[in-house]
């Protein structure tokens, strides 16, 4: 690996809160690292451990759940 390690992070976000918050960050033109890929769910109650594990299996370096 010649270049610096750039992790891929998957964020599982609740439609009502965390996803809206991510949108708000946009409206306010805040900046954050472009490594995050948000996956929207209706409710983080639906987040299943397997979703997190699968994301890692599929190559994510980290996952987080926000809701």
């Amino acid at each position: 690996m010649g270049e610096a390690f750039e992790p891929k992070v998957v964020a599982f976000c609740c439609h009502y809160c965390a996803y809206s918050a991510a949108d708000l960050a946009g409206s306010m033109r805040m900046e954050y690292s472009p490594n995050v890929r948000v996956v929207k769910l209706m409710c983080t109650g639906k987040v299943d451990t397997i979703h997190l594990l699968k994301a890692i299996e599929d190559g994510a370096d980290a996952v987080f759940v926000a809701g």
């Binding site: 397997i50 594990l53 299996e57």
Partner: peptide, 16 residues
């Protein structure tokens, strides 16, 4: 079934 799935995934990640 659910735990089989989780364990399989964990092992795959670990093997990876």
């Amino acid at each position: 079934e659910k735990e089989v799935e989780l364990l399989a995934s964990q092992l795959r990640i670990a093997n990876g």
